[in-house]
Design a protein around this nucleic acid. Sequence first.
DNA 1: GTGGTCTAGACCACA
DNA 2: GTGGTCTAGACCACT
Lengths: 124, 124, 124, 124
Amino acid sequence: MKSSRDHYQQIRDRLVEVIAEGVLTEGSPLPPARALAAEFGINLHTVNKAYDLLRRQGLIRLNRKTGAVVTLTVAGPPFHAEWTARARTLLAEAVARGLPADEALTICRSVLDSFAATQSEDTP
Amino acid sequence: MKSSRDHYQQIRDRLVEVIAEGVLTEGSPLPPARALAAEFGINLHTVNKAYDLLRRQGLIRLNRKTGAVVTLTVAGPPFHAEWTARARTLLAEAVARGLPADEALTICRSVLDSFAATQSEDTP
Amino acid sequence: MKSSRDHYQQIRDRLVEVIAEGVLTEGSPLPPARALAAEFGINLHTVNKAYDLLRRQGLIRLNRKTGAVVTLTVAGPPFHAEWTARARTLLAEAVARGLPADEALTICRSVLDSFAATQSEDTP
Amino acid sequence: MKSSRDHYQQIRDRLVEVIAEGVLTEGSPLPPARALAAEFGINLHTVNKAYDLLRRQGLIRLNRKTGAVVTLTVAGPPFHAEWTARARTLLAEAVARGLPADEALTICRSVLDSFAATQSEDTP
DNA sequence: GTGGTCTAGACCACA
DNA sequence: GTGGTCTAGACCACT
């Protein structure tokens, strides 16, 4: 796990990637919070915070008896706008630091392709 | 100003965008810290923190006499890798929340185009 | 059932109200724990916890054969003092949030009257 | 301070009483969270939780520069209904445990009178 | 054994 | 020096 960022956000980001890759899809159960806490050597509370964040973003559903499961709800226009703003900030940083625009775009494309590739693998 | 994020990072992000847009280029002087503090109604200390952050990232140079000026240093491979990781996280979130990959890519392209457009306007 | 409070306390509170209303009096049998569990769609264990709480507070008596029966024991000065403190907290909240004192008192009176009314109905 | 209840709720309840008594009124500054934490020998975090609870209930306003100040906003019908339900539960417990209805009402009246008394003292 | 809460201490953003 | 966050460990409610 990368360092120097909030633990709970690192976990959240990792789970979002796993969902984007299609490894986890609608209804897939997430690992019990305790399992992740043990795996990464952090406190249960921190994992719960990541799960709660995912829940508030509509990506998972939490339930005491069934555990955490993925719920793929398509986000609306508010998310669309907010995501565009974040993309703009990220891309601006690339350009400002001398990364050519076409190269940045190529990176984005290859990342998206890698998601699509793993998705089709999972559902042959 | 967007809300619910650290003020000093919002300022930093805004300045990075301005540089990406080409409004500020190599050697351009940034607004005096006091001016920004007044404009956004925040404390001078906070603006200075943003400027210091930009300095540590190699985007500007601070000088007691001349003020802050832009220094466009092309970032190396470490930045390239780190930026790719951040892009992956951002794109994963788009895909996980149901934004089609091609649409995400279109957004990125249009953002980059908007940067290029303002750049060529500024240096005809 | 009201929400966002511990299930076993909600059950306890409801049973206390039923006793206050006179629907259940000294010696009345409570519903079997299994019946309540089924009625509210909760675990038998949770109902048993509520019953045990009532037992410890001297409101009911548990017996493996006869089930749970009401035991109206008049509480002593300790309860009197503790109840007054709780009433003070509740009334303070009403006043602090702008509910006029006379209106708060009227509510209390009407609630007590409703208990007395159902009591006299039950024992004509 | 009474024992065996959540610390943060004990603090909240105490502050609500102080407001009901009129000791603190619209615009009055609350003690800094650190001061209360030191006074009661608890963690700052716990006091902050109590303050946040009061804020969500519309009783105080929090601000990094001005600290916490009382904001007497009159609560609407939802609070009225919710408060009545809580009063019903509390009064039911009194009746169920043998406290005569008229005695319970007398206690409520005397508590409310004590609030009114301190209020008129504070604003002669 | 599941998710969730309470208290805690160190640290952060802001003025 | 103000309110607020992050990580932590012990404990709770519920199954």
